[in-house]
Design a protein around this nucleic acid. Structure first.
Lengths: 179, 179
DNA sequence: CTTACCATGTAAGGCGTTACATGATTCA
DNA sequence: TGAATCATGTAACGCCTTACATGGTAAG
């Protein structure tokens, strides 16, 4: 019944390289932040559960003063990940608060909606900038790792989406100010 | 701390017209389905809580054999809604499973990813068709209600996004098949 | 007469967040 | 020496979903 998508997110990250929980969090907040997020309060318990179920193993790194817990995916974990990766996507869950605020715009009034649109434009612009930078970086290191091509895919999805959002902002402003 | 966005969704719908819980569910599943969803298991309890807090009132319709519970928003509820509507959006939570499966594509392989892209294209095409129809309908009744312009806004957001997704599908296929 | 839709709810449980708690290391 | 970052975890709680439970009404 359960989704437990964080299982797959973590296993996916570990399938690329071994990491600590802290690094996993960091990776989610940088590489995946445009389409996923997670907190420590879910990452650490998930990591434990992954080890219990045999999908990951933990080793301790004593080279630094503070002992780090470094996780690796097991063969069984890789299979579990691949199984999920092969299932068609059921569930693209968009919960888009901005659209809610536009949809109910008649209650708040035109100026409020115009404000939301202008906020959306600013947020989108700055995200787009980041993605454009990421695109450049990825194109420079494309041949270093076959996974990079897939990372680039998600970046380009974002770039196209954000450009569409910006065009929408222009259209929406026109719709609300022209008459 | 709490979000309770369903409060606002329901109040927003009720601010347009009185409805039963069943009708609210239906409205969410048709008008809002591209950016929101909710189950009966959350709608009915939320409706009770809204009444308890004085944001909505319930009356019984005995004109049919089965008694219907019809809800209306109160003045206090309208204020509560407007307050939220005026706050800038914090939280556009995208949890995009498709992108996860693309991002980890190196684990599943090119053909699996190509499959996800082709699924995405089909889903997007059919959603786009629906939105295009909705756009036509809304444009025909635009002057009947000032709220319709705001509904049209969200439809056009969807249209632009989905067209961007379709373009992305073409680009992604090229990236993966050309070499 | 049966299928689809109208209509209302509850119970269990899952997933995940925020807040709390702690402490080492690095760099200016 | 203080701030930022590295690093790991737990506790409480909130929101929501799925599954269950029940029955009326309309149309073919």
């Amino acid at each position: 019944m359960t989704e437990r998508k964080l299982d797959y997110v973590i296993l996916g990250l570990l399938s690329h390289e071994d990491m600590t929980g802290y690094e996993i969090k960091h990776r989610i907040d940088t590489a995946l932040k445009y389409f996923w997020k997670a907190s420590y309060g879910s990452i650490y318990p998930t990591l434990n559960s992954l080890v219990e179920r045999g999908f990951a193993v933990k080793r301790e790194d004593n080279e630094t003063a503070r002992t780090k817990q470094i996780y690796s995916v097991t063969l069984k974990g890789r299979e579990y990940l691949r199984e999920w990766l092969n299932v068609p996507v059921v569930n693209d869950e968009l919960r888009y608060e901005t659209l809610l605020k536009l949809f109910f715009g008649n209650e708040s009034g035109r100026d409020t909606v115009l404000g939301h649109i202008s906020d959306l434009r600013e947020r989108t612009r700055s995200s787009l900038d980041e993605l454009l930078t990421a695109e450049k970086v990825l194109m420079g290191i494309l041949d270093d790792d076959p996974a990079h091509k897939y990372y680039l895919l998600t970046v380009r999805f974002g770039i196209r989406s954000y450009r569409a959002y910006l065009d929408f902002c222009d259209e929406a402003e026109k719709m609300l100010t022209e008459e």
